[in-house]
Nucleic acid binder design. Sequence first.
RNA 1: UGGUCUAUGGUGUAACUGGCAACACGUCUGAUUUUGGUUCAGAAGAGUCCAGGUUCGAGCCCUGGUAGACCAACCA
Length: 680
Amino acid sequence: MTEESASLNFIEQIIADDLAAGFDPNKLRFRFPPEPNGYLHIGHAASICLNFGLGEQHNAPVNLRFDDTNPSKEEQEYVDAIKYDIQWLGFKWAQECYSSDYFQQMYDWAIQLIKEGKAYVDEQSAAAMAEQKGTPTTPGVASPFRNRSVEENLDLFERMKSGEFEQGSYVLRAKIDMASPNMLMRDPLLYRIVRKAHHRTGTEWCIYPMYDWAHGESDYIEQVSHSLCTLEFKMHRELYDWFLDQIYDSAKLRPKQREFARRNLSYTVMSKRKLLELVQTNTVTGWDDPRMPTISGLRRRGYTPESIRKFSDLSGISKRDSVTDVSLLEYCIREDLNKSATRVMGVLDPVKLIITNYPAGKTEILKAENNPEDPNSGTHDLPFSGELYIEREDFKEEAGGKFFRLTLGNEVRLKSAYIIKAESVVKDDAGNITEIHCSADLDSKSGTGTEASTRKVKGTLHWVSIPHAIKAEVREYDRLFLDEAPDSHEDKNFMEFVNPDSLHVIKEAYLEPFLKEASMDDKFQFQRLGYFTLDKDSTAEKLVFNKTVGLRDSWIKQQPAAALTSHTTRQVNQGSGQEQGQRSAINEIQKIAKKYTNLSGDKLAAARADIIKLAGEVSYEELSPLFNTAAKKVGTRIGVMITLGVLLNKGQERNSEIDAFIRAGIADENEELAKEAANI
RNA sequence: UGGUCUAUGGUGUAACUGGCAACACGUCUGAUUUUGGUUCAGAAGAGUCCAGGUUCGAGCCCUGGUAGACCAACCA
């Protein structure tokens, strides 16, 4: 209780309230309950961080429980991947549990329900039962099998279990209320027959419990105090509680379910079904494709556990649907890597640079700082020669004063090396630059302390020495979708928004030789370019680097989009599109009008024009109630007045209501309102 | 058109039981810088979905609207 309680999220608040009401802190217990039917993604990370974070805060155990009640979808491969991801994120579970461990107990409880007349075996088709279920607005009707005798139910259920029946032929249902406004309470299924081997129980069972029956009872068996899930399960809470009521022993802890909003990330999708579709259609190379929002994809891309936890932390927990901008995720990884990544140099799009006054064939070994953010990080060797590669976009024969890079006749610093001046260029027949000839200030070598070495020049470039450079493949990624929320369009499938250029492979990039020693765990900053990490496709002969994220770039923002070639297109954050759903015209007018009195000049004129435009879609019936708007809300009254003017012009007839509103407007002390009123 | 939930700057979250709307990302300036990175200093941007009401005072309370999400799988 010592922590400075910096505003709790609503889940933490619930727990704090429970504790304050006398709940024994030693009985706090949480769980993370994935279904092993896919890989974990960044949305799951929110739940993982919430549950395990709560465990850490209260020193309470957190179970990892696989919700494995559907053998037709679930596989051991997923179990392994999920476990790996969670421990990689840095969390430790108290116990590794499986809903399938409780099949016998749940079966026994089901028998008990049957004996108490609270469950029955139905043998209708799924379609027939769906039909009887009714709709949200009309009550359902009872199954003809609803009142079978206990003996018959017991017999049939026993035979379901022993494998006498075909898949889909019989189900066990709870007998609750076919007229409940909550569809889930209309005699939900407890068990269905599935003739498929289970990844853990093999062929021992032919019947499998449904989610609602299995989940709450598993929480109860494990004595989980707070069962946290996402909002779409809100409706299930009534059922969750009903099931618990049937078997609850008051000597034991009774779990409670609470719901929070799932997290969405912009420019991607976040459902296992859709991610699976991306995998199966070969839109990506697999669940761990670096463009995927999966934990494994982010890991391969170069994200660190710390950055993902930080992201979860900054994103927060709430009850409203939201789309978090990827820029927050990118901020988190940059912040982490800036502190730790080793600085190196690599040239992705090379152009040859020759230093004419550097002795031919000479080589020297320079010292390069490993990380300026960390004074103790040391240096590494960096070979230099008279023939270098620099980035093609770092040179222009001529450029404006805002271009801080190399131009003819101007000086720049070669990072960790010399100051050079471009003298001339060599071009091929097509006019492409093939060589840049420069002279170097040989007294300006970095770190020598000479006066020349500390001279200030306009820019600094990264480079590699051609005779020493190693070749590597570099993969750059862009967002996987072109739409901010690709799965939010009713009329369009999310696959239509797939970005065709989300992957850009540079087959031959040139890197400083230090990188030969790189290992999978290393994180690098290719100076001036971004953060990179080795991909698992790397071999000893062929290194493959993934670009995790580019450096923030305030230069690229100044350039017109057309000037950018495809491969230099870095991910610019062009502010997120802001469609807030379709508001009605009158609502829109109110919104604009509200701020009207704060505006002046062009902005005022623009607002007025917007109102006039929107007014065309407003009916008198919508407008007239606003005549009563409180006198102090001048902005709204002005908006209404302008709109009224438009309606009158369109032929709306005057009436006493209108006249009174206009008269009041003319008499108002606000000049703008009086003016608009007088205009009518 | 039934039920449930949500509504605060461009985005994501704050604001203890009503007391002049805060933080982070993003955006824009300027300084520093051998990374157009980092760091530092600063700015713009919301009267809290709308309308009424209660109150000395409302984002928080009440009433009525509006918008969005979820709910009728032998999925979880």
